[in-house]
């Protein structure tokens, strides 16, 4: 018998390789380009839409509209891209070649995650970046037209808050990507993973109701079920800080940090569960 093979150590380099390749594949997909153009196009066209704005102030409207595009198309992109990039490896059998190499499945799953996370990061950065440019442009015009406006630090809107909300949305998409990856790791079809991804997205947005309802439910088994639901799913409503921009004192840094930590914990947790589920998957 030969001496035992030295252990194959977990390698960040391999993980990043998988991530880089996933990113490359994603940005070449029509879906990414389509959703990005749609979101960026919509944000850019806010100039036209503001003509129809009745409800809120112009800058608030631009920020609202921009984050609307970010949340809506970002969620779609995250779920669709995660499922697609995972199943393209399985269905095209490139996973067969890759996983037959000395690579840990943990590296594969987290590599896939990081690739998607980077893609969604680019999406968020471009959308928020464009939004900031538009806000600056309109802010200048408004300030010139109304010299007696009350400014905070020389601005009508807090740009740091815009960036914070953008980053937190990105982290929320990270949690969503990790959840979709967990679903994909045990499901047999892309469509199932996408449908379930959207379904879980809905539940996570309604999770807060289960927490609120817990105290009001009197039937014991239902009460426990509601309580369980409140604990099992992460609270996505927590990331909804866009409404706080330009309201009162704006976004509290400590609150933002807590939300970010919450997202990172869930990304790690769902990622590890995806690895656990994928570890014994037959390729």
């Amino acid at each position: 018998m030969s001496a035992p093979e030295p252990r194959v150590q977990f390698s960040a380099d391999r993980l990043l390789l998988v991530a880089g390749n996933t990113f490359l594949e994603a940005v070449r997909q029509k879906l990414f380009v389509f959703l990005l153009l749609l979101a960026v196009g919509l944000v850019a066209s806010v100039q036209v839409f503001r003509e129809f704005n009745f409800g809120s102030s112009e800058l608030k409207f631009i920020a609202d509209f921009g984050f609307g595009a970010l949340v809506f198309f970002g969620s779609t992109l995250t779920i669709a891209a995660t499922a697609q990039l995972f199943f393209s490896e399985i269905e095209n059998r490139t996973a067969l070649t890759l996983l037959a190499k000395p690579i840990w499945r943990t590296e594969f799953i987290f590599g896939k995650f990081l690739g998607v996370f980077a893609v969604v990061g680019v999406f968020c950065a471009l959308t928020v970046g464009l939004m900031i440019v538009l806000l600056r442009y309109r802010e200048q015009a408004i300030m010139e037209a109304n010299p007696d406006l009350v400014l905070v630090n020389g601005h009508l809107i807090n740009y740091a808050d815009i960036v914070i909300v953008g980053v937190l949305q990105w982290l929320k998409f990270g949690v969503l990507a990790a959840i979709t990856l967990l679903i994909a790791s045990y499901s047999n079809s892309n469509l199932f993973a996408v449908v379930m991804g959207f379904f879980v997205l809905l539940i996570c947005h309604l999770q807060y109701l289960a927490r609120d309802a817990y105290g009001q439910v009197t039937i014991l088994p239902v009460r426990w079920l509601v309580r369980l639901l409140g604990y099992v799913f992460p609270n996505f409503q927590l990331f909804n800080l866009a409404d706080l921009i330009g309201v009162g004192a704006g976004i509290d840094g400590l609150v933002a940090l807590r939300v970010a930590a919450y997202a990172l914990i869930y990304i790690g947790l769902f990622g590890l569960l995806a690895v656990y589920s994928f570890r014994h998957r037959e390729i």
């Binding site: 035992p4 093979e5 030295p6 252990r7 194959v8 059998r93 067969l96 070649t97 037959a100 190499k101 000395p102 690579i103 840990w104």
Partner: peptide, 13 residues
């Protein structure tokens, strides 16, 4: 089932 077993293997599917 160990990753180490694939260190010295090349595979053409």
């Amino acid at each position: 089932r160990q990753v180490e077993s694939r260190r010295n293997v090349g595979y053409l599917p």
